[in-house]
C-alpha cells in the first residue's frame, strides 16, 4: 500500500501512522454536550466503501494527512495535508 504524500511523493505504507476517521478533525466546542463528544471520540460511520481518514507521515515530512480511500478495494482517491501551507 502506498500513499502519495503531497510533500514527499509516493511512499510505502510503513512510513505512515494511522489514526482513524477524519471525524477527528471536527472537535466539538468545549461546552458541547456529552453526546457530541461521544460521537467525536467513538461513534463512526465506518463505511464499507469510500471513507476519509487521517494518516501521519511519521517517517517522512511529519505532515498529518487527510486521505480519501475505499475500505473495500484499498484504492486511494486523494491525499491532502490537514494543515495548508508550504512543504
Amino acid at each position: 500500500m502506498r500513499l502519495n504524500c503531497p510533500h514527499c511523493g509516493p511512499r510505502d505504507r510503513r512510513e505512515f501512522y494511522y489514526y482513524g476517521s477524519a471525524d477527528y478533525l471536527n472537535r466539538p466546542a468545549a461546552d458541547a454536550a456529552l453526546q457530541a463528544w461521544d460521537d467525536y471520540l467513538h461513534n463512526r460511520d465506518n463505511p464499507a466503501g469510500v471513507t476519509q481518514d487521517l494518516w501521519y507521515h511519521e517517517q517522512g515530512c511529519t505532515a498529518w494527512l487527510k486521505v480519501k480511500r475505499n475500505t473495500v478495494t484499498h484504492e486511494i482517491l486523494s491525499v491532502e495535508p490537514v494543515a495548508g501551507g508550504a512543504a
Partner: peptide, 18 residues
C-alpha cells in the same frame, strides 16, 4: 465484521471501526 452496516439499517451509528 459487518456490524456497522447492519446496525445502520436500524439507524444506528456504532462505536466500531473495522
Amino acid at each position: 465484521g459487518r456490524s456497522s452496516q447492519v446496525a445502520a439499517m436500524a439507524g444506528m451509528r456504532l462505536p466500531i471501526e473495522s
